[in-house]
């Protein structure tokens, strides 16, 4: 569809010209309908300092049907699947409007990181963690931001101490069950690989 191609090209060009929003859209391969978007983690959140990448697939009926997005970067967030990166957001589903653009949708994702919706979760385990113990959740989210999104890590500690400490509670902080990890270790996998 000619109009679709024109629109997507325009959207990519507009995003390039706009230096203020810090939103980037790049081609993954030759096709303009499979893209990679990225944005910095919002300030004042556990995601601050991280660089988050999003896989973007433009359907045939775009912009009349919503664009398909999922996180490439692993994110510890109640509305994002910690395994697949799938995102639970209304504008990606029934609240989609054809006037929304790739950029505005990515901005929405950025703001989703600011304000999680644990009552309508994508990842039930993470949402439970969020509602029961917010501090511990923040620690894990910061840790994930550090290892997966290149974030600065916990603020008050030096990087060296974090590395040392991480071997102690990396299982808990990765949001995994100790029993599961031990099960895999028994099968001969290295602990660090299992946790990752």
């Amino acid at each position: 569809m000619d109009a679709r191609l024109r629109r997507v090209n325009k959207e990519i060009a507009d995003c390039k010209n706009d230096k203020t929003s810090n939103i980037k859209i790049e081609l993954i391969d030759e096709s303009p309908f499979h893209l990679k978007g990225s944005f910095p983690g919002p300030e004042g959140t556990p995601y601050e300092g991280g660089h988050f990448e999003v896989d973007i697939v433009i359907p045939d009926s775009y912009p009349f049907q919503p664009v398909k997005m999922k996180f490439i970067t692993k994110v510890y967030h109640p509305n994002v699947s910690s395994a697949s990166g799938a995102i639970c957001l209304d504008i990606l589903k029934d609240a989609w409007s054809p006037v929304l653009t790739l950029k505005s949708t990515l901005i929405s994702l950025q703001s989703l990181l600011c304000s999680p919706e644990p009552n309508d979760p994508q990842d039930a385990e993470v949402a439970k963690h969020y509602t029961t113990s917010k501090n511990s959740f923040d620690d894990t989210a910061i840790y994930w931001t550090q290892i997966y999104a290149g974030g600065p890590g916990p603020k008050k500690k030096g990087k060296a101490s974090v590395v040392q400490e991480s071997s102690r509670d990396e299982i808990a902080i990765a949001g995994l069950e100790r029993a599961h990890v031990e099960q895999f270790e028994a099968l001969g996998f290295e602990k660090s690989k299992v946790v990752r």
Binding site: A95, V99, T101, S104, S108, S111, C114, E117
Partner: peptide
């Protein structure tokens, strides 16, 4: 939802002028 909050920033104002809304939608 955060998304609607963010995108709705301008439309929250009482101005009902549709042309104004149009501009908001990141055209």
């Amino acid at each position: 939802r955060s998304a609607s909050k963010l995108l709705g920033m301008g439309s929250g104002s009482k101005s009902p002028k549709p042309t104004h809304n149009l501009a908001l939608t990141k055209a």
